[in-house]
Design a binder for these strands. Structure first.
Length: 230
DNA sequence: GCGACAG
DNA sequence: ATCTTGTCGC
């Protein structure tokens, strides 16, 4: 694989345009037995990132274990190019998983991106894995504010009216989250699956647990590697 | 030129 | 993303 650390933004843009043709937006078939959440944590001004993937049983959402990996990253955070900063470390965490989930939820957007290549789509294409993008803020597109109750949602569209994903109120009266298909699933399917992952918090369980895990890892409370004890 | 801008 | 205490609303 290409070394993302030495890329320029123009070069990264070319890679996104190439990968874009490989993204497959199609209804997800089959049952989901395992689902996972991926996230990254780091200290401000540091080049060390702490990546993690938490595996859960589905639909119970009971955690099975987590994969934690530390890595040096030089590519800076540039809106629209998050994948070049976080994907390398996440791939290492992915390789370390003893069981691959049927679907992976990534913290960021899927095709709701200027070039349809958000981090969830990027990771999905590289691993040939069904992925869903779940972000806390909009990156690209237009939408109407969804209703105030849990479960209310509105479409996120591009400048041509094409629906890229949905804006979902995951909890009563909290800021909505942005859900879009990454790879090997579609807009309706990604929303449906994600809704089944929302518990009593704003963020879906896979993402929330992954966020907790990488933070504990960064702070030295959890060890690197694969572990089944929480 | 101006506003927007995942983590 | 991370750093942070109290504070407002349900």
């Amino acid at each position: 694989m290409i070394n993302y650390n030495e890329l320029t933004v123009p070069e990264a843009t070319l890679i996104q345009k190439e990968l874009r043709s490989q993204v497959l937006i199609t209804p997800f078939k089959g049952a989901i037995h395992y689902i996972a959440g991926a996230d990254i944590s780091f200290n401000k001004f540091s080049t060390t990132v702490y990546a993690g993937i938490v595996l859960l049983r589905f639909p119970e959402l009971t955690p099975v274990g987590y994969s934690l990996v530390k890595k040096e990253v030089l590519f800076p955070y540039v809106p629209g190019f998050l994948a070049f900063r976080e994907v390398p470390a996440l791939l290492n965490a992915w390789e370390q998983l003893p069981i691959k989930p049927d679907v992976l939820i990534v913290d960021g957007h899927g095709i709701a991106h200027p070039r349809r290549m958000g981090i969830a789509s990027h990771f999905g294409v590289l691993t040939n894995q069904p992925t869903i993008g779940s972000a806390k803020k909009k990156l690209f597109g237009n939408y109407e504010e969804p209703g105030p109750n849990r479960g209310d949602y509105t479409p996120l569209t591009d400048k041509q009216g094409e629906i890229m994903g949905n804006v979902l109120r995951s909890k009563d009266k909290v800021k909505p989250i942005f859900v879009s298909p990454g790879h090997l699933t579609d807009v309706a399917g990604s929303l449906h699956t994600l809704m089944q992952c929302v518990g009593r918090y704003r963020l879906p369980e896979p993402t929330r647990l992954a966020h907790n895990a990488v933070n504990q890892f960064r702070l030295g409370t959890l060890p690197e590697g694969w572990s089944e004890s929480f």
